Computed example of a mutant assay.
Amino acid sequence: MTTVLQPPLPSHPVLRLRLAPHGNLPRAIDGAWWPRSYDLPAELPGLLAGLPRKWGHITSATVNGATWSTMPGQILVANQVVRLRRTQGESTPHTIVLLSPGRGRWDLLVVPPDTTEQAAEPLMAAATGGHV
Rank of each mutant, 00 (worst) to 15 (best):
G89Q: 11
L99V: 15
S91E: 15
P122T: 06
D114L: 09
L98A: 09
E43V: 03
N64G: 12
V82D: 08
T95R: 07
P113A: 10
G89Y: 04
G102K: 01
P52W: 00
P41E: 04
L76Q: 14
P41M: 03
H22G: 08
A119K: 10
G130W: 09
S11I: 05
R27Y: 02
W106R: 15
P52Q: 09
T92V: 06
G50N: 06
L48T: 08
K54L: 13
Q6P: 00
W33Q: 04
I29A: 02
L15C: 09
G23H: 09
R36T: 11
Q74A: 15
G31V: 02
G23P: 09
P35R: 03
T2G: 00
T115L: 02
Q80F: 00
P26D: 07
P13C: 06
V77S: 13
N64A: 15
H22R: 15
P122Y: 12
R36F: 11
D30A: 14
T115H: 02
G129F: 09
G65N: 11
P113Y: 07
R16T: 10
Q80K: 15
A127I: 02
R85Y: 01
L19Q: 12
G73C: 01
V132A: 14
H22M: 07
G46Y: 10
T2L: 10
Q118K: 11
P72K: 06
L99C: 05
L99W: 06
L17A: 09
L123Q: 14
L109D: 02
L84T: 12
N24P: 12
L98T: 10
E90P: 00
M71K: 05
L109G: 07
A42S: 10
I75Y: 02
V97C: 09
E121P: 01
V81N: 10
G102D: 05
A42G: 08
P41S: 04
S91M: 07
A78R: 14
R53W: 00
S60C: 13
P21D: 15
L5S: 09
V110H: 06
S100R: 05
N79C: 03
D107C: 13
Y38W: 14
L17C: 08
P21A: 13
L51C: 03
T116E: 02
V97H: 11
N79L: 07
M71C: 05
P45D: 11
S91Y: 04
M124F: 04
V110C: 07
G46R: 11
D114Y: 01
M1T: 12
L109V: 05
L40A: 08
G102A: 02
V63Y: 11
P41R: 05
H22N: 10
P45M: 10
P112F: 03
L51W: 00
M1H: 12
L17W: 07
R27P: 00
P35S: 05
P93C: 05
V132R: 13
R86M: 14
R16V: 01
V110G: 06
L19H: 09
A120P: 09
T59E: 15
L9Q: 06
P112H: 01
P52N: 08
P122F: 09
A119E: 06
N79E: 13
M71F: 00
